[in-house]
Write a protein that binds this DNA or RNA. Structure first.
Lengths: 243, 243
DNA sequence: CCCCGGTTCCAACAAAAGTTAAGGACGCCG
DNA sequence: CGGCGTCCTTAACTTTTGTTGGAACCGGGG
């Protein structure tokens, strides 16, 4: 994948939540990005490491997670193409969590230095990136609610809808089906339940004819009951800056 | 409380995680702040509202929370003097959660306009506030892990230690005891458990001689076992910008 | 001073989730 | 094509947590 396409993915996404001037787009296009391929299930940055670059996902799925002393792991977010999951490392240099690939992925690395220079030159872009980290935080808040208050089947549905809405923006949902390349173990880690229980929940949703999950692909069967179960409100996801 | 003292609380906290130049401090001191008193258990900003000011806590405790369709409420953070819990509203104007007081509180309101102007004048301060929102996000990540992976007693201990460490910075811990002005109902909402279970957990920690919780005040009995249970790593809380 | 409302506390029972264990499906590699 | 490993699947049993309901406590207001 050429480096241009990678920038394009980023710009496309940024344009959705902010209006960007042409000259600013050019600035982004001029950002030096070094591209690297990663296999599935590989750490990109680890908890405790000091980051000097931010990682733009050009293709593939990633996840952020933290592991506690007991060895249990909690997935904090699923990250998709066009996103910069570790933008926070720009100012919080030492990582407080892991970033790793779920699938084989194409990642573009942008140095902190280049980003900071860009911010100085174009404060508007700095604000846009700041906004981006704030939406990230909003997603964490919703994730807390999901794990803390919803019964397990609703948790799964909620994560699915959120992922679908985000994939929809980048044109990766077709005919009510979309990718969610997690093992049941990982689904459990995302929902704060065990893999066995995750399996129970998946089966239940299938038996009730709500949603099908097979080989990392989600197919919604009964849209109405699916949305009802998920209790999803997209307000936190995309908010126009003009609001 | 005079408006000077309020600014002082903010500056003191900001100085801890960043080095600020004298002229920048002066800029902050020049910020127009309008002070208001709030009774306990009162909404400051509500989910869905459009914010035009940010709220600096001068005195008292606040909490952020979200309520889902079923009526269940999840507390997302506990907020203490010196903090600006809704700084995110600067760019995410419509609130995605509630901010309310736990105790009677003195709050200082700073208009978005004034903050944005300050940022234009002093980009370094903008970065400092950005950093602040990033630490906020780091705390959300840890909160997700707490609710998602730790057994209930550890969850309680973890929230207690986090609060204590933050209170310590502002000089509000004396002799191993500190304020945590939550009802058991609210503790449940913070930990993602019911009030009844919260009560069980509190009793258990008391019976095991680990920590005492009485009338909104926490007294640690066995520091070693307390820390061990909490599984606390302060890395996410304060990170020097020079790191 | 006493009553009232909100906490705190507790017990018994129900439901949800964790644990352990084991068989089956599937893809990959030799 | 057969074997191996990973994931999925399921069942039986245990533990944790939720639910319901009620008693004791406590502080503030009449």
């Amino acid at each position: 994948m050429p480096s241009d396409e990678i920038r394009a993915a980023l710009i496309r996404r940024l344009c959705i939540s902010s209006a960007i001037a042409d000259e600013d787009i050019k600035e982004i296009e001029a950002l030096p990005i070094s591209v690297r391929q990663y296999p599935a299930e590989t750490a990109v940055v680890r908890d405790g490491e000091r980051a000097t670059d931010c990682c733009l996902i050009a293709d593939g799925f990633c996840a952020r997670s933290k592991t506690i002393a007991s060895g249990k792991r909690q997935i904090l977010s699923l990250d998709i193409p066009g996103e910069i999951p570790d933008l926070m490392s720009l100012f919080l240099h030492v990582m407080d969590h892991d970033l790793s690939t779920l699938t084989p992925a194409t990642l573009g690395f942008i140095s902190h230095e280049a980003l900071l220079k860009l911010h100085r030159r174009r404060p508007v872009l700095a604000e846009m990136f700041w906004r981006d980290t704030l939406i990230d935080a909003a997603m964490f808040r919703e994730w807390i609610v999901n794990v803390g208050q919803r019964p397990a089947p609703a948790r799964l549905a909620h994560v699915m809808v959120e992922l679908r809405e985000r994939l929809r923006i980048i044109g990766r949902v077709d005919e009510g089906s979309f990718e969610m390349p997690l093992t049941q173990e990982q689904i459990g880690e995302a929902l704060g339940i065990t893999a066995v229980h995750a399996n129970r929940v998946i089966r239940q949703l299938r038996e009730e004819g709500i949603v099908e999950l097979h080989r990392g692909r989600v197919t919604v069967i009964d849209e109405r009951r699916f949305l009802e179960l998920a209790d999803f409100d997209d307000r936190y996801l995309y908010q126009s800056p003009t609001l």
